[in-house]
Design a protein around this nucleic acid. Structure first.
Length: 552
RNA sequence: GCGCCCGUAGCUCAGCAGGAUAGAGCAACGGCCUUCUAAGCCGUGGGUCCGGGGUUCGAGUCCCUGCGGGCGCGCCA
């Protein structure tokens, strides 16, 4: 937005300098335009002089003086140019440029913040990908929200996004699940049963048992095959998972079954291709993939001596299929416990002739739940983990989404249940939503008091001169750049931080200045500000999949 | 033992390709509702940026090293 215009201006200035022989063209693209930390450092700051001084071996402040000379020729955008510190060039933008920004937001409406940088780029986001062995746990919840938020950000920046859930219903896990269901089925019928040693102990297995009793009565008592038990378990659990995801407003474009990789011969063809490239060998009756040729410490088994593939073979085949299906960027969201598979998949796709740098793996750390200041103990084995459904029951979807997005994936996430449920000022979710509701409320008040709300073009925006108003305008102006960089870096948490900051400034403004007052012209101008603020809050919340309430 | 991530205020965390005087929220303390929703605002206190070296004009940010925590390191997924 405005920063883009300033960057263009500095770029032009750089070119002028090159033409005048002040510096060489070598520094092109190396300098930046940023919003400085401190207010007394202008609206924008560029390090162009420092960068060029490094290249040219000259005094940065002297170069900065030249930069200022050139920039001062321009009078559309720039108010003042100052040289500060070691050679930063600080620019102040004309007040009216900021005021006119409201018209741009008004015109863009719901599109303000959205862009087309990703236009035409097909990207797949693979996430959740939990096998249907039980309800989603809070760890999956973090992943689900993170993946969906990234997908939404990419959509907001024009990418063609495809959400996929990858699962396997054929492995040992599922067999054990089926046997667990059989045991509960027999137990419910009062028959003798043996519960599998490493079986699934969760309460939900009884639900599956009950469904089996309802549907089949005693018909399955003598059944040898585990299939009907497994099938019922899978079906029931998938329904459960889907409804949980639905509650969070998460929908997948496709559920990809690992089994289809076998049925379509993709597994075999991967092995054949690796063989033909001389990248596999037999040892101890197993088939090994020469991952050492791709920088790893040791080779890895892809087919066990039993003839069964290891997990990494389908993983590789699956990623090759993603490429073949025409995606240009593959985003994988995994829990950090899956870190070991990443190098294997990367080596595999590289071996098959695809570019591993197009796979972006986002590993997220674990979630700890806090209640009464103490950690809630969770164990998958004992089935004492907290499910996403329970979490949603307790805190609601907005709070869950907000808290899961609030931290960057790298850090462990501490989820404070007390804070998330508190309906008071400490709760950051409401802080932002309340800002939106408050803006709506002011606009409602204006209508009730019959204060005319005019278009920004018809208001005298020059009346917006308070420091708080200028600060708000500047922050609003940064929104599109923020969305773009958050999308391209796959970092939803940055949008959260932005919205909290904007909300803070708005609440502060509200408490200090009356929007609707006796001064008619001023009221109208301020109503324009509030109306456009409402849009920025609304757009930001919507892009993240949060609701933007009109009243609270 | 090896690999990845983390270590910033009492607590939870920001710090955006190394940049100009380290920030926010919560917790603590003190104020603000006959006026647009107090789910809000204003003010106060609070830091050896884990320790030690190094690179640089400049390091919370990069490199090395030590310490502490998490996750991995399988012919489990």
């Amino acid at each position: 937005m405005i920063r883009t215009r300033v960057k263009e201006l500095v770029d032009a200035c750089f070119q002028v300098g090159v033409r005048q022989g002040l510096w060489s063209a070598g520094g092109a693209g190396k300098f930046t335009v940023e919003i400085p930390k401190h207010e007394n450092q202008g609206d924008f700051s560029t390090n162009i002089a420092l960068v060029l001084a490094g290249i040219e071996k000259k005094n940065p402040r002297q170069i900065a003086a030249k930069v200022r000379e050139i920039l001062e020729q321009e009078r559309e955008l720039v108010d003042t140019v100052e040289i500060a510190g070691p050679g930063f060039v600080n620019l102040t933008i004309k007040t009216e440029v900021w005021q006119q920004l409201l018209k741009i937001i008004e015109k863009s409406g719901p599109d303000f913040g959205r862009s087309t940088v990703g236009a035409g780029k097909r990207v797949m986001v693979e996430f959740v990908s939990a096998n249907p062995t039980g309800p989603l746990s809070v760890g999956h919840g973090r992943q689900a929200i993170l993946g969906d938020a990234i997908a939404r950000l990419l959509e907001a920046t024009g990418h063609d996004v495809y959400r996929e859930y990858y699962y396997n219903d054929a492995g040992r896990q599922m067999r054990v699940l089926g046997e667990s269901a059989r045991a509960r089925y027999l137990e419910l019928l009062g028959r003798p049963f043996t519960f599998p040693e490493d079986g699934y102990q969760g309460e939900y297995i009884y639900d599956i048992g009950r469904k089996l009793v309802d549907q089949y009565g005693e018909d399955l008592v003598e059944r040898e095959s585990v299939e009907p038990f497994k099938k019922m378990a899978e079906q029931t659990i998938f329904e459960d998972i889907s409804s949980t995801l639905e509650r969070m407003d998460i929908r997948f474009d496709n559920y990809y079954n690992e089994r289809s990789l076998y049925e379509n011969g993709y597994i075999d063809s991967v092995v054949q291709e690796l063989k033909s490239k001389g990248l596999v060998y037999e040892k101890d009756h197993a088939t090994w993939f020469k991952t050492t040729e791709f920088g790893q410490e040791k080779d890895r088994v892809i087919i066990k001596s039993s003839g069964e593939p290891t997990y990494r073979l389908p993983d590789i085949a699956y990623h090759r299929e993603k490429f073949k299906r025409g995606f240009e960027l593959l985003i994988d969201i995994f829990g950090s416990d899956h870190i070991a598979t990443v190098p294997d998949v990367m080596a595999g796709v590289e071996a098959l002739g695809y570019d591993p740098s197009k796979i972006k793996v986002i590993l997220h750390q674990f979630v700890t739940l806090m209640r009464d200041g103490k950690q809630v103990k969770m164990s998958t084995r004992k089935a004492t983990f907290v499910t996403v459904d329970e979490l949603l029951d307790e805190v609601g979807t907005d709070a869950a989404r907000f808290f899961f997005m609030m931290r960057k994936p790298d850090s462990q996430l501490e989820f404070d249940l007390d804070l998330a449920t508190r309906e008071s000022q400490e709760n950051p979710v409401y802080y932002v939503q309340y800002a939106h509701a408050r803006a709506c409320s002011i606009l409602r008040q204006a209508t009730e008091k019959e204060v005319e709300i005019v278009a920004c073009g018809d208001a005298d925006l020059r009346l917006l001169t308070e420091p708080e108003e200028m600060a708000l305008l500047k922050l609003m102006g940064a929104f599109p750049t923020l969305i773009e960089s958050a999308a391209l870096d796959h970092e939803p948490y940055r949008v959260i931080f932005y919205l909290m900051e904007l909300a803070g400034q708005f609440h502060s403004y509200y408490n200090r200045h009356k929007v609707i007052s006796d001064h008619a012209a001023l009221s109208q101008s301020r109503l324009c500000l509030v109306a456009e603020l409402r849009k920025v809050f609304g757009n930001g919340l919507t892009i993240l999949g949060l609701t933007a309430p009109q009243t609270m």
